[in-house]
């Protein structure tokens, strides 16, 4: 699952001319470390929703990669 999430994150980063990541760290911040802006985050949540049927921002905006994994695991 973590590989898939990394893949999705990299799709969003690459399409939007940002640097992709080699390894996922649970503490990585989507905004501060990966440089995602609102549109990137919006795209990310939609892509994850398509893959896992989970709205990761359902209970509020999350920021760390670890929180994404947590939200998806809950389902």
């Amino acid at each position: 699952m973590e590989n898939k999430i990394k893949e999705i994150i990299n799709i969003v980063l690459e399409k939007n001319n940002k640097e992709t990541v080699k390894d996922l760290n649970k503490e990585t911040s989507l905004r501060d470390d990966l440089g995602m802006d609102s549109l990137d985050l919006a795209e990310l949540t939609v892509r994850i929703e398509d893959e896992y049927d989970v709205d990761i921002f359902e209970d509020g905006i999350i920021d760390k990669v670890g929180e994404i994994i947590e939200k998806i695991s809950k389902r």
């Binding site: 919006a42 949540t45 939609v46 929703e49 921002f57 905006i61």
Partner: peptide, 12 residues
């Protein structure tokens, strides 16, 4: 449009 909680919508 595709709904999301951050920007309301994004375009598809």
């Amino acid at each position: 449009a595709r709904k999301n909680k951050i920007t309301g919508n994004i375009l598809t």
